[in-house]
Design a protein around this nucleic acid. Structure first.
Length: 268
DNA sequence: ACCTCGTCCTGGTTGC
DNA sequence: TGCAACCAGGACGAGG
């Protein structure tokens, strides 16, 4: 489940290997990938273009092309990139120089979309709120968003328009750091506590980036290396284990249909 | 406008 | 040991 730290790690590794290279052949092997568009149309738009930049917005990977178009890749649950043949290949980009970038996605939730220069920013802005590691992600913004939502706090943090890039893992980890319960309603959070939550979100994501993401199930980086963040989870997946802060057994609940781990004692 | 839930999808794990 | 049921969850659409 690639979230911001995993996608950022992928971006960092792809950038030096892709920028300046031409896409010679684009093979889309799974027709679901480009739905509702015909994969042949998408291939035709990509082939021959040169990659100018590899960027990230929220959980989207953005390949900017010299044609003016951009390829937006969303990895959803199990999407990944690599440079070696593997199982569950859904697309292959043959690069100038003979290298083959393979897109793998076991569960086929991932999506590829080509947008032109005019559409790019409106599309990304409609899907994503502020980047959590940018200056635009302020406590004031977060407080305002929380104040108008009655849903569980965690459910609101998973809304990409509130903050871009948080997923199930880092939402739980951020809430643990902030000592706030995922179950309470967003509007019930005291405005005085919001700066703590804002800093906790940043800290959780920065920790993930520093460890090159978390390797669970299907995540691997393009270089084939595993991230190490899973070894440092405080609560995620740790039902029954002692809270690293107070020793109380970690509890598990379902919030918005998602597995949710938290300390019932020190997260209020 | 907001909220919850079902859907998509496959493979690994669990339980009988 | 076999096999079916269950579980993982990001985004989106339906329905309340």
């Amino acid at each position: 489940m690639p979230e911001l730290p995993e996608v950022e790690t992928i971006r960092t590794q792809l950038e030096p290997r892709l920028v300046g290279r031409r896409l010679e052949l684009v093979s889309i092997l799974d027709t679901r990938l480009t739905r509702p568009l015909d994969p042949r149309e998408v291939s035709a738009e990509l082939e021959g273009a040169r990659i100018e930049a590899v960027e990230r917005r929220g959980k989207y990977l953005v390949l900017r092309l010299d044609s003016g178009s951009s390829l937006l890749v969303h990895l959803r649950m199990t999407g990944s990139f690599g440079f070696k043949p593997t199982s569950h290949e859904r697309a292959v980009l043959e690069l100038e120089g003979g290298e083959r970038l393979v897109y793998r996605d076991v569960r086929r939730f991932g999506t590829w979309l080509v947008v032109d220069a005019v559409e790019l920013e409106p599309y990304l802005s409609a899907k994503n709120g502020p980047e959590p590691l940018s200056a635009r992600f302020t406590s004031a913004w977060l407080a305002n968003q929380l104040s108008r939502r009655r849903a569980p706090l965690k459910a609101v943090l998973l809304d990409q328009r509130v903050v871009a890039g948080l997923g199930n893992i880092y939402a739980d980890e951020a809430l643990w750091r902030a000592r706030l319960s995922p179950l309470r309603s967003a509007e019930s959070v005291d405005p005085e506590d919001v700066p703590r939550l804002q800093r906790a979100i940043r800290a959780a994501l920065r920790a993930g980036i520093a460890r090159q993401g978390a390797s669970l199930r299907d995540y691997a980086t393009p270089d084939g290396v595993s991230g190490a963040m899973q070894e440092e989870f405080n609560v995620y997946g740790r039902e029954g284990e002692p809270c690293p802060r107070c020793g109380t057994p970690i509890a598990k609940a379902r919030v918005g249909g998602r597995g949710t781990w938290y300390c019932p004692r020190c997260q209020r």
